[in-house]
Design a protein around this nucleic acid. Structure first.
Lengths: 329, 329
DNA sequence: CCCTTGGTGTCAACCGGTTGACACATCATT
DNA sequence: AATGATGTGTCAACCGGTTGACACCAAGGG
């Protein structure tokens, strides 16, 4: 690994001069600029960003903690986040917490030790204290943490309302609400619970009944998930509409329906959430509430950039959701 | 951010002593060990890993370049890779190249500048030269790069054979091979082409004909993908078996079949590849050739650890594939 | 009483860069 | 001839740690 010293030697200039061309400071003639560029090329020199970061006290890295990239919602999130981060000159350190609080905490410590400039939290947030004394920007994705931590989310409440509104309009008489996270239960901090709230708030005047099931998701392909759904629908044979809090869950519901020989959408209408890739890969194609993941990711990166520039940002950044009608309703 | 100096001051010892307890070197009494620990706790001190890395010339970071995490195969890969990397004390810098060669090259340079200890390439590898002078370990995932770069892969050839064998055994008379990458065409370096080879090599004695389609994948949800498949099957109405080179493609094939009112598996048998989550989320559940992504990821991390310890590793690390029979065949 | 082991401190160099202060040119203007 | 902009070099300090050399002292054993 050549160092700046080697470049200086090869170019026949001083280290300071090389540093000057590297950072575009002070006066440098075109001639030496070329000499230095030439030397760098010949040596295949890459400045050591660690050394630079150390001095600048800025690593241009952001840490991303999520439950698991293997869930399509998060994989799309990570994709876009990395894209925009790269655009702004940031690198992404990825952490899968599996919703394990202790692992989460370890990751936070690790990220801090490694001098990331900011953290994006897309995972649980049970012990708020741990997040507050971190003197680095944190932003939270779809979870409330504390009121001094900016959050980017989408309009979960309206999402829930849209979903039940649609099911009601399509003539459903008894609705089921299926929730369940990836590797752990939902809880109040998870804004997704607002979906349930919205879902229920749309029902009172209609006199339509609803039942609810919280699945402990075992792993995407695990057959137990479907089995549990089948059992649930056998207990509630009159349910004719389902709101699932993710497309993955909705896909499982479709499986259960096929197994129970319920026709979709005639005997059972299903609506998912997120509108990730699989929503249009299952059959029938899933009606879903779309979260604008791309825009949300872009917003997250912009928030970070602004925070790092010391600018004020709004604490709540909520994006509208849209109902995407396909074939399951 | 407290520094080691602050800890030393608070504990009433020298910086050297703090460093000694931090690194477990030399003689330290339990008493000072405790004092230092106490001081660290009170200050919430975290040693600056950048400074340490700079000195040690080891960052404990590995760079991961893939086409896109949003593809389920890669999202599962990334998940497991990060898991095992973390186990071994490594952090993962994620890069989505979108199969854009120039972006790939930029990422490689970036990773080098940032002193990653190793790179895992799961993306394209058009210009081999660029990879050779990098004086850091590279390992390649399912792609051949150069013969001095270790590769972890699975037995694509057998995978192809298993697939066509099954279709033949199930009585198919005309097979279709559907390939197509994420955001770019396949090419020879991509070992997946061996799947096609295996697929064909199983056919000669059977006298079974096959046709082939290479999809330019537009984006998972894009309806054009299905349209093109529908057109293809209309051109080949007698095709009754499909081998798709990924489960995502297979899911699209299922869609096309539903659209064409072809029953699965009666009129059309379908087999996918990878056996990722969606294989069991679509209906009918997809028969697929399973790649052991977890084991492969573990192997990748182990290779890196060994290479960094200067150990010899085998250049080709191929894993067996398994046929997972479900409902589409 | 000497020697060893344990325990701690001081000091300086190092990792690979960046930066400010300052000196000293050269060259074009006024 | 004096002035100022341009261009480059030297030097030292700094970012936040690590490490080796060495000195010093106490306690315990032979």
């Amino acid at each position: 690994m050549p160092k700046i010293e080697d470049v200086a030697a090869k170019a026949g200039v001083s280290v300071t001069t090389v540093s000057r061309v590297l950072n575009n400071r002070g006066y440098i003639s075109q001639a030496t600029r070329d000499k230095v560029a030439q030397a760098m090329k010949e040596l295949n020199y890459q400045p050591n960003e660690m050394a630079r970061s150390l001095f600048r006290k800025k690593s241009n890295m952001i840490g991303l903690i999520i439950p698991t990239v293997s869930h399509p919602f998060f994989s799309e999130l990570v994709y876009h986040l990395e894209y925009y981060a790269d655009q702004k000159g940031y690198k992404v350190l990825l952490c899968n917490s599996n919703r394990d609080i202790s692992k989460e905490r370890k990751y936070i410590d690790m990220l801090k030790k490694n001098q990331v400039d900011a953290i994006v939290m897309g995972s649980n947030v049970q012990d708020v204290k741990h997040y507050l004394n971190l003197n680095l920007p944190i932003i939270s994705f779809d979870r409330t943490v504390a009121n001094n931590i900016p959050i980017v989310t989408s309009d979960n409440y309206t999402g829930g309302r849209l979903a039940s509104r649609l099911l009601v309009d399509k003539g459903c008489r008894k609705l089921a609400h299926i929730s369940g996270g990836v590797g752990g239960p939902n809880h109040a901090a998870l804004l997704a619970s607002k979906r349930f709230q919205g879902f229920r708030d749309e029902l009172p005047d209609t006199g339509i009944e609803h039942v609810s099931l919280e699945l402990e998701i075992a792993g995407l392909g695990d057959k137990r998930n479907v089995d549990e759904l089948v059992r649930f629908f056998q207990e509630h044979p009159d349910a004719d509409g389902v709101f699932a809090t993710s497309d993955v869950l909705a896909a499982l519901v479709i499986q259960a329906c096929h197994q129970l020989k319920k026709t979709i959408p005639q005997e059972m209408k299903i609506i998912g959430y997120d509108d990730v890739g699989i929503a249009s890969l299952v059959w029938p194609r899933l009606t879903s509430i779309r979260q604008p993941i791309r825009e949300m990711s872009e917003c997250a990166v912009e928030l970070i950039v602004k925070l790092l520039q010391g600018e004020e940002v709004s604490m709540i950044n909520s994006f509208p959701v849209t109902l995407i009608q396909r074939d399951t309703t």
